[in-house]
């Protein structure tokens, strides 16, 4: 490894140390919430990035996978007493099965059509969550009993959630890194850049897309389950409404799609903005933070198409094997 590689390794370790240790010194729950949200949204944006950033298949329906994760683990726990540690995997299995089905039925669809199909899928999922009251309690939502317990994945302190969130984030980053360095990653990018050329070169684009879809939806569901455990109360508007799909895409794009760390950087930028504005404004100027989100999104698309992380990487780590 070159000295540049060593430098990058040190930077990475230092960064990880900051996120691992800083929460220990933060005594304010309000800020710890911020950490958790950054990890949740960073991980979720990373999951979206696998299919939409690497594979270029823009999904506007990831709210469905996130929500399926949240509802599956919560319902299994409430109705069957199944520990969320197991329930989250059930959610992941359901989500990735649905992801594969969606991938298969949208097989022929390109670009805009795929986006519209996923939008419809996400919307159907949220309508179901809202109206199948027998299962989901509809808009009233589901409440998890607050008594903490490790087996129930309910932690007594925020720090428990902080570290579990960090763990999920690291897992997503690691998986993305491995994909980026594997045939799957190369194939996904080839598919994104030009499907005909990829096929002519022997890339089995069908399988590649389904694999990416399965991974991306499963990870989204796992994160959704965790988020439900953190909120301890879920309803369609907190875990499955369509705005969630838009927001996750927005974070990833602003951070930098098709990169390992970009989506996380997106969350790192946006969550503090949200928290700051909420703290300053309360409910005084509703919608202002969304106006800012939209403005940043458009500015980034126009002037930094590779996203903020993408741009920084090109400037400081152009050929880094770590900062991908």
């Amino acid at each position: 490894m070159s000295s540049g590689g060593k430098r990058d390794g040190i930077i990475l370790l230092a960064g990880m140390a900051v996120f691992a240790l800083l929460p220990l010194f933060v005594k304010n729950d309000f800020y710890l919430d911020g950490f958790i949200l950054i990890f949740v949204w960073g991980a979720f944006a990373g999951a979206w990035n696998i299919i939409s950033g690497y594979g270029g298949m823009v999904s506007l329906g990831h709210n469905a996978f996130f929500g399926i994760g949240a509802y599956t683990s919560t319902l299994l726990f409430l109705r069957q007493g199944v520990s969320p540690w197991i329930g989250m995997w059930a959610g992941a299995a359901i989500a990735s099965a649905l992801g594969i089905v969606l991938g298969v039925i949208c097989f022929r669809l390109r670009s805009h059509y795929f986006a519209l199909a996923t939008l419809a899928f996400g919307q159907v999922a949220s309508i179901i969550a809202l109206n199948w009251r027998g299962l989901t309690e509809g808009a009233e939502g589901l409440t998890l009993p607050i008594r903490p317990g490790f087996a129930k994945m309910i932690f007594a302190t925020k720090l428990g959630y902080v570290y579990m969130g960090l763990g999920l984030l690291v897992a997503v980053l690691l998986i993305t890194y491995l994909i980026d360095n594997s045939k799957l990653g190369y194939y996904l990018v080839a598919f994104r850049e030009n499907e005909d050329a990829a096929r002519a070169l022997g890339v089995r684009t069908g399988r590649v897309r389904l694999a990416a879809m399965a991974i991306s939806s499963a990870l989204s569901a796992l994160i959704g389950s965790f988020y439900a455990q953190y909120l301890l109360y879920i309803d369609p508007s907190s875990v499955i409404r369509i705005q969630i799909a838009v927001q996750v895409a927005l974070f990833a794009i602003v951070g930098g799609v098709g990169t390992v760390f970009g989506p996380f950087v997106g969350a790192l930028i946006f969550i503090p903005i949200t928290i700051f504005l909420r703290a300053r404004l309360g409910t005084a100027l509703p919608g202002l933070h969304m106006v800012i989100y939209g403005g940043i999104l458009i500015l980034v698309l126009f002037y930094m198409p590779k996203g903020i992380y993408g741009m920084l990487r090109e400037r400081f780590f152009p050929s880094s094997r770590i900062f991908k």
Partner: peptide
């Protein structure tokens, strides 16, 4: 399919070139 044909040792180029533009 084209991909399976390629894997058997038959490959083609495109008259209208199709490079992976951003790679």
């Amino acid at each position: 399919t084209p991909e399976d044909i390629c894997r058997r040792g038959l490959c083609r180029t495109f008259q209208i070139t199709k490079p992976f533009s951003n790679l």
